[in-house]
Amino acid sequence: MRRIALIVNPIAGDGKCLRKLPKVEKILTGARVEYTTLMTQSAGHAVLLAKQAAQDGFTTVISMGGDGTLSEVVNGLAGTTCVLGFIPAGSGNDFGRTFGLRSGDVEQACAVIIQEDVREIDLGYTEGKYFLNVAGAGFDAEVGHMANVWGKKYFPGYLAYIASILRQLVRFYPREMHIELDGRMVDTKAWLVAVGNGRFFGGGMMIAPAAEVDDRLFDVCVIGATSKLELLKVLPKVFKGDHVHHQAVKCYRASYVKLSSNSPMVTQADGEILGTLPREFIIAEQRIKVLLPR
């Protein structure tokens, strides 16, 4: 018998998540889905709630919030037998885009929960943190950090990321990077290196259009050194995945990625700032079970 814990971040999406909760409750109750609602109270709380839910015998844990909430729930469930579900109700909602789940569409997300279709997918791991979607270093990490501390205060949804991109363009510049990919060495000057398990980041940017979540490989996208004007031409193409055809962009596949640089470069995983390089990223040995669309 399914026992479901619904972990809700009430402040996700500037309160949009909490406003959508009654609709979610109505849909799940109407479908005779039994669940227990657990509210997060602070950053990091969803990790503890997910861990406790697994220990208390819940078989399925649903994350309702943004990608940050989802990341916390993943880190609480990693290594357990619980099934993960998610209702994208935050500002970015990038992980669900890989599977055609529309941001804020709670009816679609609830339908996936009701259908109970479970799929095992890969988890990334980097020095104490699991990630489900995209990690990396450089310009994207700086933009993500700025979006969290500044952009989301003034702009809704993907506009927070666009505004943060423009602001970071003033201060950021390409850095020399050393990239190790399953033993292959690549030295290059780059704006960013994205390590993708999923396809989207940054509020809808398809940075790794060929990524598959169950192939035991990362899709690694390197946007090499180019002028800021040229970068401005490349970035809009990322939303459709067309940036991969640009001469400054190189794509690789690997299960082990190590990034290092002589210059300070911020790193991130699923939007969470982790510190600076060097850093290793690996495909975790244990997968995670996730409720996904048919």
Rank of each mutant, 00 (worst) to 15 (best):
A5S: 02
L6E: 00
I7W: 03
I7D: 10
N9V: 02
D14C: 06
L18K: 05
L21H: 02
K26M: 11
T36G: 07
T37F: 01
T40L: 00
A43C: 13
A46H: 09
A46I: 08
V47Q: 14
L48M: 14
L49C: 01
A50C: 03
A53T: 00
A54C: 09
F58P: 01
T59M: 03
V61T: 10
I62Y: 09
S63P: 12
G66A: 12
G68C: 11
T69A: 07
L70R: 04
N75F: 13
T80R: 08
C82K: 01
L84V: 02
G85M: 01
F86E: 01
N93R: 06
D94M: 08
T98D: 01
F99D: 06
G100M: 10
S103Q: 09
V106E: 02
E107N: 14
C110N: 09
C110S: 04
I114V: 12
E116V: 07
V118R: 05
V118H: 00
E120P: 02
E120G: 03
E120S: 13
G124T: 04
Y125Q: 12
T126Y: 04
T126S: 15
T126A: 13
G128F: 11
G128W: 10
K129D: 13
Y130A: 00
F131W: 12
G136R: 04
G138A: 06
G138D: 05
F139S: 08
F139N: 03
F139W: 07
F139L: 15
D140R: 08
A141L: 10
A141T: 00
E142Y: 08
E142P: 00
V143Y: 03
G144H: 02
M146C: 13
M146I: 14
M146R: 14
G151V: 08
K152W: 05
L159Y: 06
A160Y: 05
Y161W: 09
L166W: 05
Q168R: 15
V170D: 13
F172R: 01
Y173E: 15
I179H: 02
E180D: 11
G183S: 10
R184E: 15
R184D: 13
V186H: 04
V186F: 09
T188I: 13
A190G: 13
A190W: 05
W191H: 11
L192T: 11
L192K: 05
A194Y: 04
N197D: 07
N197H: 02
R199A: 07
G202W: 00
M205E: 01
R216W: 06
L217R: 12
L217S: 05
F218T: 10
I223Q: 02
L229G: 12
E230V: 14
L232P: 03
L232W: 10
V234Q: 08
L235Y: 09
L235S: 08
F239Q: 06
G241M: 06
H243Y: 07
C251K: 08
Y256T: 14
L259R: 06
S261F: 12
S261E: 09
N262S: 15
N262L: 15
P264C: 01
M265Q: 05
T267S: 15
T267F: 13
A269Q: 11
A269R: 07
I273M: 12
I273W: 11
I273H: 09
P278R: 12
E280Q: 15
F281Q: 10
I288M: 08
L292T: 02
